Simulated scan of single mutants.
Amino acid sequence: MLKGNAKQAGRTPMTPLGAVIRGSAAAAVGTLAMDVLLYGRYRKEAGKSGFPRWEFSADVHNWDEAPAPAQVGKRLFEGLFRRELPDRRAALVNNVMHWGFGILNGAVYGVLAGSVPEPKVRHGALFGAGVWASGYVTLPAAGLYEPIWKYDGRVLAKDLSAHLVYGLTTATAFRILDYVRKPRK
């Protein structure tokens, strides 16, 4: 971490491990905030499941129904272990990948935010937009999404707004965790 800059800003320098832990914890809050937004949209569009059932993918029963996070996880597992994952694992893999991806990105955010003198909540918008954009690069390359230019602007805007909620909430939670870890001078 850039210890001199942190001290100049009046805060105790953050260790790399501390930044990873805080970023991961903050991103768990950010992932939940994004999911609450997505669930609200689901209900507004006549979705019937309660939040726990929706959140834990209880209605995903096979790989044909599974969204992109599950498909990526399936490919990783089967490529690594050379074993086929049964349909009954689709919901579990979806949740592990969705939450794991959100938390892992938060670890990266933590290292970056922990390296600047005063991390700003507004940096979360750039972070969320970057996570959103990375999906539209990697998922088409994996054959799980169409190229970004094939999506309707409304679909892209809804997806981007959810990722902005994720990024801004992650940045806010990181800032709070950074503040409470050690009082300012």
Rank of each mutant, 00 (worst) to 15 (best):
L2S: 12
N5V: 03
K7T: 08
R11E: 14
R11G: 09
P13N: 03
T15Q: 07
T15P: 04
G18P: 15
A19N: 03
A19E: 08
A19K: 03
I21G: 00
G23A: 05
A28V: 13
A28L: 15
A28Q: 13
D35I: 01
D35Q: 09
Y39W: 12
R43G: 05
K44E: 08
A46Q: 11
A46I: 00
K48V: 14
G50N: 11
G50L: 11
F51Y: 15
F51I: 09
R53Y: 10
E55T: 04
D59I: 02
H61S: 12
W63K: 02
W63A: 06
D64W: 02
A70N: 03
V72R: 07
V72D: 07
G73N: 01
R75G: 15
E78P: 08
R83H: 09
R83L: 11
E84N: 07
L85P: 00
R89T: 13
A90E: 03
H98I: 00
W99Q: 00
W99T: 05
G100F: 04
G102W: 01
G102N: 02
I103P: 00
N105S: 13
Y109C: 03
L112W: 14
G114H: 10
S115R: 09
V116M: 11
V116K: 12
K120L: 11
V121N: 01
V121T: 12
A125S: 13
A125M: 12
G128T: 01
V131D: 03
V131K: 06
W132K: 01
A133R: 09
Y136I: 04
A141G: 03
W149C: 00
K150S: 13
Y151E: 07
D152C: 02
D152A: 05
G153R: 14
D159K: 03
Y166S: 00
Y166T: 04
G167N: 13
L168Q: 08
T169Y: 05
A171M: 11
A171V: 10
R175E: 10
L177Q: 08
Y179E: 12
V180N: 03
K182Y: 14
R184L: 10
K185F: 10
K185A: 13
